[in-house]
Amino acid sequence: MIIPARYASTRYPAKPLADLRGATGEARSLIRRAWDAAMAVTGVDRVLVATDDARIADHARGFGAEVTMTSPDCANGTERCAEAIAGLTRPPGIVVNLQGDAPLTPPWFVEALVEAMRADPAMEVATPVLRCDEEALDGFVADRRAGRVGGTTAVMDRRGRALYFSKEVLPYADPAKRHAVPVFHHVGVYAYRPPALARYVGLDAGQLETSEGLEQLRFLEHGIAVQCVEVEARGASFWELNNPEDVPRIEKVLAARGTV
């Protein structure tokens, strides 16, 4: 499993080093909490933090993480993962990208993703999606009304293959019927076969990827299927750290879970 992390975020500079307080009031950085989430997943052979920034690298090594340095020219986490495995003596059969801004990711989200990949050798890329409950959907809509970029939504065909990902709330529904139309929250995790990662870095970023700022759209724009795997919350709240305003949301969940 690889946790890509960069310092120079446009919307939230130094985000990986932002502190999040848990149930006891202890502050741990975002990258530390993402690492904790990764270490809770069963069946993972190795966890790497992939970064191009010495501050993140030093901090991650300080709490015991294994770090691999990658080029500052990587445009996104998928490219960073591709570079990270290129330097390994033995590339893994499946590469999991747990994005560093998703510290609330429950382990079963990742485990379900890996299980789906193992069950279908033809699956090149997969990612989890979570059916929004009323609270999550209201949060998405509130963010957009306030002009903030919140979570990402996914639209799929009947076999679960992604048709589109967007930072808008899709599909559109009449406000009176909004809660009757399923909206799927795209969870910030990907699983790839190494050949798919190698292909990705050789492809140009298209207009959709550039406009939305969503790396997974490069696969779709070049005709590479992305399988969406629906996961269940099991009562666990999920939210990514996209904006400074998300810090209290995540800290509230950490406190409710009793997370240190």
Results as ranks from 00 to 15, higher is better:
His186Glu: 05
Ala180His: 12
His222Arg: 00
Arg199Ser: 00
Ala173Ile: 07
Ala180Leu: 06
Tyr164Trp: 03
Leu197Tyr: 00
Ala236Thr: 12
Asp143Lys: 14
Asp133Tyr: 06
Pro182Thr: 09
Ala198Val: 01
Ala256Phe: 05
Gly160Glu: 01
Tyr192Ala: 00
Gly147Leu: 07
Arg158Phe: 00
Asp157His: 04
Ala162Ser: 13
Ala191Trp: 05
Leu217Tyr: 02
Asp246Ile: 00
Leu217Ile: 00
Arg193Thr: 07
Arg234Thr: 03
Leu208Cys: 05
Ala180Gly: 09
Asp138Cys: 06
Tyr190Pro: 03
Glu240Met: 09
Ala154Leu: 11
Arg218Gln: 02
Ala142His: 14
Tyr190Met: 02
Leu163Asp: 11
Pro244Ile: 02
Phe184Gly: 15
Arg144Phe: 01
Arg144Glu: 12
Arg234Asn: 09
Leu214Arg: 06
Gly213Arg: 10
Asp246Thr: 01
Ala205Trp: 04
Gly151Ser: 14
Leu130Phe: 12
Leu137Glu: 14
Lys167Glu: 11
Glu135Pro: 01
Leu170Asn: 12
Leu217Cys: 08
Leu163Ser: 11
Pro244Arg: 08
Val247Trp: 03
Ala198Thr: 09
Thr152Tyr: 12
Gly151Arg: 08
Tyr192Ser: 03
Phe238Ile: 08
Gly147Met: 09
Val187Ser: 13
Phe140Asp: 10
Pro195Ile: 00
Glu215Pro: 01
Leu208Pro: 02
Ala176Leu: 08
Leu130Tyr: 07
Ala225Pro: 01
Met156Trp: 09
Val183Tyr: 09
His185Lys: 03
Ala233Arg: 13
Val253Ile: 07
Phe238Leu: 03
Asp133Ala: 15
Gly223His: 07
His186Val: 02
Glu230Ala: 11
Leu170Ala: 12
Ala198His: 09
Tyr172Val: 10
Glu221Pro: 02
Phe165Gly: 13
Arg199Gln: 02
Glu209His: 09
Gly213Pro: 03
Gly160Ile: 05
Glu209Leu: 01
Lys252Met: 05
Arg234Tyr: 05
